[in-house]
Design a protein around this nucleic acid. Structure first.
Lengths: 220, 220
DNA sequence: AGGTGTGAACACTTTCACAGCA
DNA sequence: TGCTGTGAAAGTGTTCACACCT
C-alpha cells in the first residue's frame, strides 16, 4: 500500500550487461537449435560466451524459472522466452539519420532486419542525397525529421551524423516522440528521462585496445 | 608455486569503462582547445560527458596528478597526457579482415586514421575481391593472414567476417603475433591470456534498446 | 548423479565528503 | 574562495556454495 520510502524499483532490474548477455544467449540458442539440440545446460551456454554457468543462471532468473533441475533448459522454449524478454516478438520501426559511410554499412547490415528491426526511413542533410532510393526507401531531408518520425511511428533512431549535428537530431526526434537512440557520434547526448541512448564509439574501442597494447594495465 | 594467493594487481588498474571515458575526455579537450580555452575544471569536463566531476578526478588520478587546485587542468597539457596514457603518441598498425560492408565502413571511417591507427592491410576470403585496390592498399587473400600480420608487424586486427569464420581468423593472427582484436562478429572469441579482444555487437546494441522500449526495466 | 535457482560473500565502481593547496 | 586529490561509504555486478528438484 503505497509507502516505499527509499524508492525501490518494483521488480528486480536487469543491467545493460545482463541484457547484452541475454542477446548473446539467444544467438547461441539459435545455433543450438540449428544443430538440432533439444536441451542445454547453463554450463554449456556459458562455455560459448565467455561467462560462467552461475552468471547464466542469475541472468535468466531475473525473469523467471525456465529450466528443469537435472536437465537444463529446453532450447526452442528458452529462445522464445528470450525473444519475448528482449522485445523481439514485435517489429520495431527504425529511422536512420545520416546516409554516409556508417549509415550505409548499417543499411546493409543483415542483423538489422533479421531480428525484426525494420528500417522505414533514411534522412540526410546533403541535398544531393535527398531523393536517392536505398532499396525501397527514398532518402528524405533531415529538416523533415520531426514529422517523419511522428507520421512514420518510428521507435528507434540511429544517429550516424557528425558529432556537432547529433544533439539537434536527437532533440528533434524526441520532439517527434522517439524514445530510443543508437548513437554513433562521439558525443554525449542529453535526453529527457525515459528516453534511452546507446552509444557506439568506434574510435574509443580502438583506443581501449591501444591502451591494452601498452601493457600499462596488465599484471605487473 | 610463486604464491600470490588472492592475486592482487600490483598497481591500480584502470577498467575498460575508465579508459573509454578517458577517450571521451580527450575528445572534449580537443574541442576546448579548438575553442581557445586554456584551462578546464573537472566539473566542466564532466558536464560534456555524462559523468560527475568526482568521476573525472578519480579517472585521472589513477594516472597521476595533472590539475592545479583552485584552477583546474591545463587543456593542451592534459590532452597531451591523455594521448600518452591511451597509447596514441605512437602509431599502431591495423589489419582489416573482411572487406564486406562493415569492413568498407571502417575503411572510410575518419576517426580511424585521425587518431594514429594506420590501416596497413586488408584481407578477404572472396577471390573476386583479392587484388582490388582500396586506396593505396591491395586486398590480399585471408589464407596469407599469418604471414601478412607477421611481416607487416600488425598490432591490431579488426575482425569483420561472419561469425563462423571469426575464431579461425583470430587463431591465425595470434599465431602471427597479434595481441589485440576489434571483433564485429557476434561470437565470443577465445584467445590466450595477454591478448585483448574488444567486441562490438551491433545487433546486441539494438536489442538493448528494444528491451528498454518495453519498459520492463523502468521504474514501475 | 546432474543441474537449477538463489541468498550470501566477494569484488569492483561510483559517489561522497573533506583535507589541503593555489 | 575554488578546485584538486583521495580515503571512506554506498552501490552494483559477479561469483560461490548449497538446498532442492528430477
Amino acid at each position: 500500500m503505497s509507502a516505499t520510502p527509499p524508492s525501490l524499483p518494483p521488480s528486480r532490474r536487469a543491467s545493460d550487461s545482463t541484457v547484452r548477455r541475454l542477446s548473446l544467449y539467444l544467438r547461441f540458442l539459435e545455433d543450438f537449435q540449428a544443430e538440432g539440440r533439444q536441451t542445454v545446460s547453463s554450463r554449456h551456454l556459458a562455455s560459448r560466451g565467455s561467462t560462467t554457468a552461475a552468471q547464466v543462471r542469475k541472468d535468466l532468473s531475473l525473469f523467471g524459472s525456465f529450466g528443469k533441475r537435472g536437465l537444463g533448459y529446453d532450447v526452442p522454449q528458452l529462445a522464445e522466452r528470450l525473444r519475448d524478454i528482449l522485445g523481439l516478438a514485435r517489429p520495431w520501426r527504425v529511422a536512420l539519420v545520416g546516409a554516409g559511410r556508417i549509415g550505409s554499412a548499417l543499411f546493409h547490415y543483415p542483423g538489422f532486419q533479421e531480428r525484426g528491426f525494420q528500417l522505414t526511413a533514411i534522412l540526410d542533410v546533403a541535398t544531393h542525397r535527398v531523393g536517392e532510393s536505398w532499396g525501397a526507401i527514398r532518402v528524405q531531408h533531415v529538416a523533415d525529421l520531426e514529422t517523419v518520425v511522428r507520421d512514420g511511428q518510428v521507435d528507434i533512431v540511429v544517429v550516424a551524423v557528425p558529432g556537432p549535428a547529433a544533439q539537434e537530431v536527437v532533440d528533434r526526434a524526441v520532439a517527434g516522440g522517439v524514445k530510443a537512440f543508437l548513437n554513433f557520434a562521439p558525443v554525449s547526448l542529453k535526453v529527457p528521462s525515459g528516453v534511452a541512448v546507446n552509444n557506439v564509439n568506434l574510435a574509443a574501442e580502438l583506443e581501449v585496445l591501444s591502451f591494452h597494447l601498452l601493457g600499462r594495465d596488465a599484471r605487473e
